[in-house]
Design a protein around this nucleic acid. Structure first.
Lengths: 344, 344
DNA sequence: CTGAAAGCGCTTACAG
DNA sequence: CTGAAAGCGCTTACAG
């Protein structure tokens, strides 16, 4: 039995000193080997002795000590508006997977119901020693926060001069969707927009409007509604659209979540999708596949998004040359919620 | 200008020493005040000086140093099978909210696609200095893992002698659901069970079977299917049930996610819910409200769950007397997916 | 290739 | 009520 196994009762957590003693080397050698910096600095025999001693003791380096000394935590924070939206759960998963490959881990910070997100981010700094930030918040942070996050954060699907951004090709995604509907013969196309006044949503609306114009389809004010990201709100908005005297034959939604409300309103009004009404979403989240019939939507590829996000953030953190990413390509996914308009 | 503002270029992060210097007190006093332990130990004037100095410098205690010294990180890990299931997103939110009140924060660990979750948990120990664990994994951990987690973890909706558990009253929830269907006149009730062989699902099945027995309804082997938590798998299983010669008039699902597959199969077979088929879920997740018509389900109250979970875990960590919680009450939520069977 | 040592920024007992 | 000091467990420059 080694000396370190003499502790009675409470199993004390082994430290690098315990490992060093058992392996017959210095504590520094243990640190070098476990930190993967032993090449050419610690003899092969010592390395083996250290590794097996570590294994026997169940040693794992103390993260707080490591972070304190090195100034690196390898923790990335992903800030999203709401995890209850399955789209953001998928974004988290994609970022998590990509980060793991690079030796980082991701914590999830939800802004929902939070007034003071400056405080929240401060807390995260304190609690987790977050090294880098991915803000998928659709809202450009305020000036003091930008100062705090300088050279540590990137913005996804939003733009500011103050911070590197990963852009999504909302433009083409939305345009493809509009073309799709127009090709199906729709001209009475309403837009159910997201309530938050973010650039990503303004962009959707601009493309909606321009595409109508290009096809000489009149833009109607009564076909424009905005809704919060709740089923109740989107239901109400859709109900209002569908009970217009001259109701739309298609409703384009800014998000799959909003489309779910449209399905409910259609059901309440005994309208069949896609026979009586075409509906489209945005995101290609789980929601789009749960809906029956499945939702035609614009896919945001969360795996690629995660990889590019992490690559961009790490380049910022390491002050390397920032890689250039073209806006992420979004593709139209045609499913059962859209159909050619029937002659009546 | 204070002495600490003389650094040129890189804004160095202020430390307690900087605050102490500016406030004209000792570093220890700063620690006491910021740590909320100043009562009766630091004079009122000093406290004020410290607080304003901290504010002016934008000081926040270094978490790594704090954790290293005190051995406390105030981080709780929540381990779930899959965040893409909106139910677990809601569980996270509930736990997060409850933990925040107690000064803890919650990181989310997803087991999906992970083979070796022992390693994952080890990693989390290393990376985040996790103090306490909530395992909502529906699988009792292996022996070495139990050793690692002793006195640090609780299990939710699962039972083992090795670990405190928070139980859900699956029994009554499932029983209420079955009563509901039987009262509606259903006798051909199939059970679409979850594939994982966990106690929580075995329990659902036991209650299903017993309730049939109590009502002299024959138990049929061809009405029993299991499905993984994917839409494709549950669709296939439901399709198989619905194309039986003597197809069920109701399908009871172990989870809302599984019910979504049933909706798809019903749609494919031109069966109308609830007219031709009643469907029920379990969890009352976002999924149950997205489905059209909305799903009759058993509600697991994630807010209460979060509060009890955190309360139980903290009592374990603080080695206080463990509070006793009765199994969490689940309530039947009747919505549009169930109806009285029609006379044919 | 190896060892001895400094020090990251705190918390906390201890002496006044 | 205040101050001086030890020490948490590492990483990393430095001297051999």
């Amino acid at each position: 039995m080694g000396e370190e196994s003499t502790d009675i009762g409470q199993r004390s957590v082994p430290t690098s000193v315990d490992v060093a003693r058992r392996a017959g080397v210095s504590q520094a050698a243990v640190s070098l080997v476990l930190g993967g910096k032993a090449a050419g600095r610690v003899g092969k025999k010592s390395q083996e002795a250290i590794l097996s001693a570590a294994r026997e003791l169940g040693y794992a380096p103390n993260s707080a000590a490591r972070t304190l000394r090195s100034g690196r935590s390898h923790v990335i924070a992903l800030v999203v508006p709401d995890v209850n939206n399955p789209f953001f759960a998928a974004v988290f998963e994609g970022a998590e997977r990509a980060a793991r490959k690079e030796g980082y881990s991701v914590i999830l910070i939800t802004l929902k119901d939070i007034q003071d997100w400056q405080q929240l981010i401060n807390e995260a700094f304190t609690t987790y020693a977050v090294e880098g930030w991915v803000l998928y918040t659709m809202r450009v942070p305020t000036a003091p926060l930008q100062e705090l996050l300088r050279d540590k954060a990137i913005l996804v699907d939003g733009f500011t001069d103050e911070m590197p951004s990963l852009l999504l090709d909302i433009q083409h995604g939305m345009s493809d969707m509009m073309q799709h509907l127009i090709q199906l013969g729709h001209t009475r196309i309403a837009h159910l927009a997201a309530a938050p006044d973010d650039e990503t949503f303004r962009l959707r609306h601009r493309v909606y409007r321009e595409t109508l114009l290009q096809h000489n389809i009149p833009y109607r004010d009564d076909y424009q509604l905005r809704s919060a990201f709740t089923l109740e709100a989107s239901y109400q908005a859709a109900y209002q659209l569908l009970t217009l005297a001259d109701a739309p034959s298609a409703i384009v939604c800014d998000s799959d979540m909003l489309a779910a409300g449209v399905y409910k309103a259609a059901y309440a009004l005994h309208l069949s999708i896609p026979r009586d009404l075409s509906v489209t979403g945005f995101d290609d989240s789980l929601v789009s596949r749960i809906l029956v019939p499945e939702l035609t939507t614009v896919a945001i590829p969360t795996d690629t998004l995660g990889e590019q996000t992490i690559a961009l953030l790490l380049s910022v953190l390491e002050k390397k040359q920032t890689p250039h990413f073209d806006p992420l390509l979004l593709s139209l996914v045609v499913r059962g919620s859209t159909a050619a308009i029937e002659d009546k």
